Amino acid sequence: MSAVVDDDAIPARPESSESRTFARAVKDLRDGLASRELWFHLGWQDIKQRYRRSALGPFWITIATAVTATAMGLLYGELFGMDIKVFLPYVTLGFIFWNFIESSILDGSEVFSKNEGLIKQLPAPVSVHVYRVVWRALIIFAHNVAIIVIVFLIFPPPIGWSAFLVVPALVLYMLNSIWVTIVFGILSTRFRDIGQLLTTAVRLVFFMTPIIWTTTSLSNATGETSSRLKLVELNPMFHYLEIARGPLLGQPVEFYHWAVVLGCTAFGWILGMLVMRNYRARVAYWV
């Protein structure tokens, strides 16, 4: 004679009753931040491993970015008839800030799946690997600062006190990098196709964002400034670049650019906390 078991009488797993709370998600973020020595080390090791046995090491980051930015600046400056003294700093800054955004999205989407052994063997908060991605992106950005200095020495822009606005812009970049890594990193661990989709999407968005072209060159080519500019403004990456690139070029940055970025940051963190609450404990099982 078989016994009938009531599903409601079966005790819930600890994961569903205790782990899936916002308090545990916040604690994970705090504990991960407190483990900064660990993610400092892991971030540096990622850079060293990437350029192991090379003569110039991490300076290849700077060289590759400088060559690409210079080549694109000269080529598209000639095609669009732009003043190279203005256009080359514009393109260079666009590439450097875009690299930060791109690495946050692509590296963040695969940080868990690429570190299966470390995640299963090392008892550490999930957020350690999130901060690791942000730290690594900052290291790469720091290497590229040398390019900005050189370009500004050759083609000095009209920089004023507004240049200090790049500091809060970078803070927003880091905050967005955290939630992007949480959302795409965890979801890509469960659904591996997301990483491939992101790679394709990032490449497409690159050409849709004013990096190797400007909104002024677009209006000069079409003669439809207002309608074309509205289409460009639908791209959030345009606003992310404007808040960081504009101050360093001595250009006034309209408040709506900051408003869009702040709105995206708030929405992203809400989404990130939801993902952390629901799926943080499952990462070790999905990798």
Rank of each mutant, 00 (worst) to 15 (best):
F22V: 15
N115K: 10
L249K: 06
Y76V: 06
G195Y: 10
L271H: 05
G250E: 08
F184G: 00
A259V: 13
E102A: 07
L38Q: 10
F255M: 08
A281S: 13
T181I: 14
P252M: 06
L42N: 03
N144L: 04
F164A: 15
V4W: 12
A12P: 03
E116S: 07
L197S: 11
K230S: 14
D46A: 07
I139Y: 07
W39T: 00
A12K: 15
G250V: 10
A266G: 01
P236H: 05
M237D: 01
E102P: 01
L138K: 03
L175W: 04
K48M: 13
T70I: 14
Q196M: 13
T216H: 13
S54C: 12
R203T: 14
F87T: 03
V134W: 00
R13I: 09
R36T: 07
T62V: 04
G108K: 01
Y131S: 01
V5I: 15
V126M: 14
I140R: 04
A71M: 15
L56Q: 06
T199I: 08
I101G: 02
A259I: 11
G185I: 02
L175P: 04
I148Y: 01
I159D: 07
Y173L: 03
N235P: 05
L229S: 09
V275P: 04
Y285L: 14
M72F: 12
A12M: 12
L234S: 07
W286V: 05
Q121C: 08
D107Q: 15
L249D: 01
D107K: 15
D6L: 08
R52T: 15
W258T: 05
T21P: 02
S219M: 13
S217P: 02
R280Q: 14
I105D: 00
M174E: 12
N235F: 05
W286R: 07
D6T: 08
I119C: 03
L93V: 10
I105W: 05
R280K: 15
P123V: 08
G77E: 03
T70H: 09
F184Y: 12
Y240F: 13
P157A: 14
K85M: 14
G94P: 09
G185Q: 01
V261T: 02
R52A: 12
L175I: 11
I84Y: 10
P89F: 03
T222F: 14
P14N: 05
I101D: 01
I243C: 02
P236F: 04
A142Q: 07
M273E: 04
V4S: 12
R280V: 10
L93S: 02
A284R: 04
I96W: 02
Q196L: 08
P14C: 04
A25E: 04
E18Y: 10
I147V: 11
R245K: 13
